[in-house]
Design a protein around this nucleic acid. Sequence first.
RNA 1: GGACACUUAGCUCAGUUGGGAGAGCGUUUCCUUCACACGGAAGAGGUCGUAGGUUCGAUCCCUAUAGUGUCCACCA
Length: 863
Amino acid sequence: MLDKRYDPKKVESGIYDEWKAKGYFSMHDLKKKPFSIVIPPPNITGKLHLGHAWNTTLQDIIIRYKKMQGYDVLWLPGMDHAGIATQAKVMQELRDKGIDTRSITREQFLSYAWAHKEQYAKTIHEQWKMMGLALDYEKERFTLDDGLSQAVNEVFCSYYEEGLIYKDKRIINWDPVQMTALSNIEVIHKDEEGSFYYFAYPVVGTEEKLIIATTRPETMFADVAIVVNPDDERYKKYVGKKAINPANGDELIIIADSYVDKEFGTGVMKCTPAHDPNDFLIGQKYHLPMPVCMNKDATMNELARGYTGLDRYDCRNKLVEDIKARGLFVKEEKIIHAVGHSERSDAIVEPMLSSQWFVKMKPLAKRSLEMMNEKERVEFIPSRFANVFTRWMENVEDWCISRQLWWGHQIPAYYRKDTGEMIVSRTPPEDIENYVRDQDVLDTWFSSALWPFATFGWLKNDELFKRYFPTDVLVTAYDIIFFWVSRMISQSLHLTHKIPFKKVLIHGLVRDEHGKKMSKSAGNGVDPIDVIDKYGVDALRYFLTTISTPGQDIRYSEEKIIASSNYLNKIWNATRFVLSSIDSDVKGDEQIDLTKLSAINHHIILRFNKTLELVNEAMERYDFNMASTHLYNFVYDDFCSAYLEQSKTALKCEEERKITSIILLKIIKNIILMIYPYTPFIAETLYLSLPNHLASIMLETYPDYIDLKEDENKEKEVELLNEITFQIRSFKASENIDSRDKLSLMISSPYFSTLSCNTLKDMLHLSNVIEVKGEELDKNSRIFIFKNGKISLSHEQDASERKASLVKKLEHLEAEISRSKKMLDNENFLNKAPVQLVEKEKVKLIENEKIKADILKDLAKFN
RNA sequence: GGACACUUAGCUCAGUUGGGAGAGCGUUUCCUUCACACGGAAGAGGUCGUAGGUUCGAUCCCUAUAGUGUCCACCA
């Protein structure tokens, strides 16, 4: 027997372990059609947050739904080693323990890092369990496990052989805190206030000076030239001459290049090839030297004479003062400009010349863009994100993949100790003692990009790969489209010649109650574990996945979690009612005679079928908001408010009791099955309380339509039943009639049954309900006229009141009629509007005219 | 500078083939009647940002515009 109250704690405990122990998550029936998802592997750096909860619940819903539909589903779990983030975290842990991180070796560090991984993996497993995720743990992978490492190694080497990977000295983004190179997308640009410093550069051999503006004076020690536009009349004459660098007195050659914008600044630019990507291009074009003036920690090196060892910003301040002292300072102008910060350390990134490994992106991007116009293309949901993807691919630049870290896949390049000659090889050279291996590791996203196929044993062409790849859908937030989605697509197309997934379901981010982004630093994060503790995981899951439109952010809202919980309580109690109202011999799977259905039974089946159709359509689109809304409306309005109340009378009626019980049970079972993908714990508990259940709801199949021949007259009966119920309740409320007052009702309708009369009597607490012929209604009572019949209620009203209410109704009706007439008189409407719509309007007009005639007849009695 | 999203009831948000605007919470009145007070019944509350256009008809399509937000972007 179910408790009176739905208690999530009680409901949820033990179920997950049971499912896991029985192997439900890893059951695979190879006769069924495969359906697969790979989890976006969480980083092993922290706890699960609401974003993870949302992301994984969406996938869980899809997996559970598809499994019920008869697919052989595989949801592959795994985790990401998260190079920079994990290394930073482990280093911090070591420092907190008092270990000197500068003195430990690579091997020592790695053993600490693996211990860290084990610990966090345990936490993540705990949290997956709390969320109730149907993950196939037998297939679990890690981005640094042997299989993935082999795949990474193979891809690196084959790309190198194809010329898709190369090593070169280029300007990269340097993170001076993590002391590693970053890719372009790991740099976050923030608008910050800065200064434009204007300095005077005396032109050698003249009395003239060139005024040049810079935002980064500290890089002036690495200046190698001054550039003007060749068409600039102001400066043409200086080309070929030299000017003095006010920072260090060096002479700089003045050259001309059309890159310089005459209108921008003073029209004169200094060229610092090792510290600016554009200057680098000019430096290459004119074969200029490319000195670097900073160390890896962003302090000044020996090139900055007099400033060596200073931090870059201390150097900037001191240098500006020194130039002022020399009389070469012109002015300082405050500006707002975009400054690059490291995504992980938040340090200001230094563009710096450095020797790194790159992936040539143009050929890969080209293939990805072609794919988007082919039949076998990746479908983005919502579709606008496809444009985000293609736009990025169109403008993509080469990808810097080497990182100066230890935690990751070490690059398989080896350098001969004596000659420095480099080889790239799948296996270490035989005379390894003569080589030094490249110390760098690969960008974490390089391995993540292989995730959807490397995890399936792509390299060995495993059965898993053959059966489950390409995957069916990838679920992720929009913030990693560039980092991950786009790279998986381009890598997969090149390596497997297939798209990695057929669809990408993009969701948004979880914001706090005020719409702000949740972050650790702002301290506004909500821990899902606290929410689960308070309201249960089902309420959290339902909230996360049903309140939003695809691709849109959601705002955390405790009141909506409470509302979710109340909804579940509603289903709980509806189930409790059904189980306590029906006889124990009713199992719910009995055949029912569909030709002998009462009006309410007929109606609820009709409504169920319609709801199932709407829900299925929305589920297929992965539109969980609409799917849940349709089910919600059915549960509340059709089932609980109407049918459940109406069925109470039928259950008291001998010839109706059995069939109504069966239908009650069938419908509630279907509701439980339909809510199950969203809220599996309460669904399992309720399911197991039903008669004739399987061992678990996880073994169930999705509900099917209930066969029914639609009967219009029965629908009219229910419509009238509902109209009368509503009208009388409304009337009682407006007239301040106590609901327990025993009024009696006369009814005249060709569609009404005795059962419906009794139902009205019970629901409206009437003393009696009498069926009469057309004109026999009680003339002294309150009369209500409907489309399919009319009634009188034994509540005395004086004549003027009755007349007034009839007049009011008449006015309303006439407005309706004139609206219909206006539309139907419009030839354009008749010709251009859909036929069904015109018909609908015509029927409405006829019905309203009929009611109007009835009212007029009544009104005539008052004259 | 470019792109995209959002603007609908007091608040938070739904509303895909253009055909009389919905939910949750809040709010008013009544009801502890045997599924549920984590409830029920009946209400109040909206010129669907603004201005044009297309259409028989626009919250929905088009154009412009305002506000908010996000992403992208090397202009020294």
